[in-house]
């Protein structure tokens, strides 16, 4: 029996998985909106302490990485595996940059004594404790998704270089792209919710 291959099916499966990813973050958004509603002033004050410049920079990085992966798919479909690989490499680079900046941000906050259960944070108001609790769990979960994405992207890079992904068979790369875009979209919401609304 021939091996069954259904590109459209794979894409549907990926999308369904992404829907459940959205709801995974959805649970956190429910918490965020409820706690923001209950502690508007504390959230306002706490948001001032995040570094808006770094946040903006990270947003631009992710947006650009979304462009680079979409171009990588575009070129593999055209049969240009070299350009496709280069754009994949760029995406990986941007992802690492994102995590690097995130690392700088977190360590700065932790250096200031603002981390869950820190004596300094416990001395603050309850709304601020919640803000930072949510900040760490939401950006942390997002960062974890970026990290997982980086592993998948690297695997894709190998496959593209080996020619296992080519102009006839590119659905795995497309699905990786879908995942990466979703990670981008979640950041598009996290960024204003934590850094901008003050």
């Amino acid at each position: 029996m021939e091996t069954h291959r259904d590109d459209m099916g794979s894409k549907i499966g990926m999308w369904l998985f992404l829907l459940s990813e959205i709801l995974l973050f959805g649970g956190l958004f429910i918490l965020y909106s409820s706690y923001r509603y209950k502690n508007p002033i504390d959230f306002h004050l706490a948001a001032w302490e995040l570094d808006r410049v770094l946040g903006t920079f990270n947003t631009l990085i992710l947006i650009t990485s979304s462009l680079s992966i979409v171009l990588s798919i575009f070129f593999v479909q055209k049969g240009n595996r070299r350009l496709s690989g280069l754009f994949l490499l760029a995406t990986i680079f941007l992802g690492i940059l994102f995590l690097g900046i995130k690392y700088v941000e977190w360590t700065a906050k932790i250096g200031h004594g603002l981390y869950p259960n820190s004596p300094r944070l416990l001395g603050r108001s309850k709304g601020e404790i919640l803000f930072f609790g949510l900040y760490y769990s939401m950006t942390g979960l997002h960062g974890l998704h970026v990290l997982i994405g980086l592993f998948i992207l690297s695997a894709m890079l190998v496959l593209v270089m080996k020619g296992k992904i080519n102009e006839h068979r590119f659905v795995p790369l497309e699905n990786t792209g879908l995942y990466w875009h979703l990670v981008d979209i979640i950041w598009i919401f996290l960024f204003p919710l934590f850094y901008l609304i003050t």
Partner: peptide, 24 residues
């Protein structure tokens, strides 16, 4: 055309980011 669209969408995303940041 698709290629060009991607670049345009990227530009739009950058501009929108700029707007929200300055709005804030």
């Amino acid at each position: 055309r698709k290629y060009r669209t991607y670049i345009l969408v990227w530009l739009a995303l950058v501009i929108l980011t700029g707007i929200t940041v300055s709005m804030a």
